[in-house]
């Protein structure tokens, strides 16, 4: 496994080669980042097919915009920004067409079941319990606003700084911060009874 530093270095070398007309150099970048882009897209959209679309579209857009990337920022951060923005577009279009599957209330209804399960201690129920946590996380993420979800996913899963997130979403640092706070509050409300009863 390469260290992050040398990985970024070879990313920029690959970009330079693509810019110089070496079409094969783009393959290096696509193969290196495709899994991570898929994971990000899935965390953003919660939908497998949409995430595959995001992966394709991200690499096509990145290729066309490669001249805009400046070596002083990390290539992966820039790439994930494109992916996050396209995921947002996609989710927005879905919502406009009223295709949202999960809602907050669907999550609420589960609370009692989850409590009941949680009070049954170890054994196979424990596995079931972690399934329940996963479902709850998924439902809560689906209940976030687009901005909250993007900001939270970029901060929590992608490790981007609030400053980077603000840049990606065209928000002030403060607005980005508050989107994350609101997301955390909603997750807390949904998960706290569950996870804190376990410990």
């Amino acid at each position: 496994m390469q260290s992050k530093g040398s990985m970024e270095e070879s990313d920029s070398v690959a970009v330079a080669r693509v810019r110089a007309g070496d079409g094969n150099a783009y393959r290096v970048l696509v193969e290196r980042h495709s899994r991570a882009v898929f994971r990000l897209a899935y965390r953003m959209t919660g939908n497998e097919q949409d995430s595959e679309d995001v992966v394709q579209e991200t690499f096509l857009r990145a290729y066309k915009q490669l001249h805009r990337w400046e070596a002083r920022s990390s290539f992966s951060t820039w790439l994930y920004r494109i992916a996050a923005n396209y995921s947002l577009d996609l989710v927005r279009r879905r919502q406009r067409h009223g295709e949202v599957a999960m809602t907050e209330s669907a999550g609420e209804r589960e609370t009692d079941v989850v409590h009941a399960l949680a009070s049954h201690a170890p054994g196979p129920d424990r596995l079931l319990f972690s399934d329940r946590v996963q479902q709850r996380v998924a439902a809560t993420l689906d209940g976030l606003s687009r901005q909250e979800r993007t900001a939270f996913v970029l901060r929590h899963f992608e490790g981007q700084s609030i400053e980077e997130i603000a840049g990606a979403l065209g928000l002030s640092g403060n607005a980005a911060k508050h989107s994350i706070f609101r997301a955390v509050q909603k997750l807390r409300r949904a998960l706290e009874p569950l996870v804190n009863s376990q410990s």
């Binding site: 193969e31 996963q134 929590h156 955390v184 998960l191 706290e192 569950l194 804190n196």
Partner: peptide, 20 residues
Amino acid sequence: RVLNSVDSFPVPERGADYET
């Protein structure tokens, strides 16, 4: 505990030849 549990959000695995 809450934020750590968020890490359990499952992402479907991709096959071995995904990159290709």
